[in-house]
Amino acid sequence: MVTKSIPVLPFAWYERAQRRKQSALTPIWEVLDQVKDPEIPVLSIWDLGVLCDLQAIDGKYVVSITPTYSGCPAMETIRADIAAALEAAQLQPYEIVTRLSPAWTTDWLSPQGREQLQAYGIAPPAGGGCAHAQGLTPEAGIECPHCSSSNTRRISEFGSTACKALFQCQDCQEPFDYFKHF
């Protein structure tokens, strides 16, 4: 297994990490870490960036979440899973609020989340670079999560879910999902 270079962390991620680090609610954040993205079950909603914030307001836990894409069908399940996790840990009362702004971006993926995607066989979003100036998916060159070759080509901009595009590796011939830069 080739060791991959770690990309420079986006500032948006740093801000998120600071918010969590400065929170006094560490055990509750950890309860929420049990909640995974239903479509990519290795990825917690924190690592995905869907979980924005957690606060204790007037004796109530207020959990803020944000949808990835407008039509993300996983949001209902995520809400239900958060409720179940909090109730199982007897953390009540709570409220789950949806935030639309600022809009979710793949810059909120945690470094750990990127590694988990890779290990799961999904190429993490390529950051920066001129191919991504408009935030779109390049036609080729996304690193294959199976053999690390960059000799790959885009098959379809829209993959199995809105957040993924479909690629194929020209070296190992495996098709793979690419988590789109967004």
């Binding site: 949808p67 894409y69 407008s70 039509g71 993300c72 829209f158 809105a162």
Partner: peptide, 9 residues
């Protein structure tokens, strides 16, 4: 997928 984006909006 595009349909889903619109229905989400």
């Amino acid at each position: 997928n595009v349909a889903l984006d619109y229905i989400g909006r």
